[in-house]
Design a protein around this nucleic acid. Structure first.
Lengths: 224, 224
DNA sequence: ACCTGAACACCGTTCAAGT
DNA sequence: ACCTGAACACCGTTCAAGT
């Protein structure tokens, strides 16, 4: 019962081993969350993964909840947001793409970012980037905040679907899609049955593109 | 330690007392979730609230997770979706309003609906209603599913913000808003600082209206 | 200053036993 | 058929003790 994933050394830390740090804890937690799911992320599990007593973690993070906050900060810090060019469509696409890339890189941790309050300081960087885009594109200040929140709502909703939908909908799992189509057709709901082939699958690239085009058009119409 | 909220009778169920049922369990769970938060919703807590042994619940729900599924089904079943009139804007507003009302009635349970996969049979009713609206408004079948998913993304993102933002942003808590404005101004981020008064508050009615108008315009542009 | 071990007050859930 | 009690295998976290 000693062979686990990672470096599960027990007892005193090995001499020459990296000392415990907030950074190492957060990295390990992110890896574990991606591997097992956030809801199965456990203080004791993180500690074991680091070869350390569970209680040692509390010298670096205040609680499990604080650790989840730290994970969302790390995900947000990984966003690579481009400087605004002045072209609204290109800039909105760049920002949306940066969010989507981060969500795809850490799909399970991303749910934390999408779920938890993004009001914290960690979200200020992205907020600044989007406001810069909107300002550069000619939005007056008040309307820029409305536009920011509309764009964020669309992004949050889109990425939530994408990260929480299993790979079942991606286009692989053909017989899964076929079975779903049969069920939809048998639902007794006329419009659902008629749209069964389209509802049974979900190409995330395509859906994102469709929604993004609609968002851009809406923002352009409201620029003022 | 016997005086608790609800009917916390212990031991054998009282003669003449309503027998335990899936329905009663789900109702109690929803009430508890709204009172304490979903993450604090506990099988043992639900049982105690019903004056019953924790294990008895498992005769009616398979697991805690199944109970959470049942809650999302109950919330979705509470949606009162109007019949489509043919006026795209009016119909989209009606559907969006129905979702928002349900989310406002059960803000904490609503996060379950917004977070979990809405692919389950429980979401088929709302799907049918939205597809009916889009069909009536002239969307060709394939495009209707894209439009459905775009609308849903906006709704999920918007309602997620609304239900997970405390009452702090509603417009009450004036000194909270003032303090937030000061912090934003001191952030060192130029656009954030400039937009501080707008960012410090969030009128959910106003944001929803702004986003909904954008959504309707986008859908009309894409109707085909 | 940081790490540890034992302990506390919880969890969800299984299972055999009751009625 | 439904409910119960004891038990199992976990949790997060506190605290006094070690180094």
């Amino acid at each position: 019962m000693d062979t686990r994933t990672g470096p599960p050394r027990r007892g005193r830390p090995r001499r020459g081993q990296e000392p415990l740090s907030r950074r190492r804890i957060v990295d390990a937690a992110m890896a574990l969350a991606e591997a097992e799911g956030v809801e199965r992320l456990t203080m004791r599990g993180v500690a074991k993964h680091l070869g350390v007593d569970a209680m040692s973690l509390y010298n670096h993070v205040a609680s499990r909840d604080a650790l989840l906050d730290a994970i969302t900060e790390a995900v947000l810090a990984g966003l690579r947001l481009p400087a605004p060019s002045g072209d609204l469509e290109a800039d909105v696409r760049a920002v949306a793409g940066a969010f989507r890339s981060a969500a795809q890189q850490y799909p399970r941790c991303a749910t934390l970012v999408l779920t938890r309050q993004l009001g914290a300081p960690a979200a200020l960087g992205p907020t600044e980037a989007v406001l810069a885009v909107l300002d550069r594109a000619g939005f007056p200040p008040g309307r820029a905040v409305h536009a920011l929140r509309t764009a964020l709502a669309f992004l949050v909703g889109s990425l939530m679907r994408e990260v929480s939908a299993g790979p079942a909908f991606s286009g692989a799992d053909v017989e899964g899609a076929q079975q779903r189509e049969v069920e939809l057709r048998a639902s007794g709901l006329p419009h659902v049955a008629a749209a069964a082939p389209d509802l049974a699958v979900c190409d995330h690239d395509e859906e994102f593109e469709f929604g993004l085009a609609a968002l851009v058009a809406a923002l352009e119409a409201v620029r003022g």
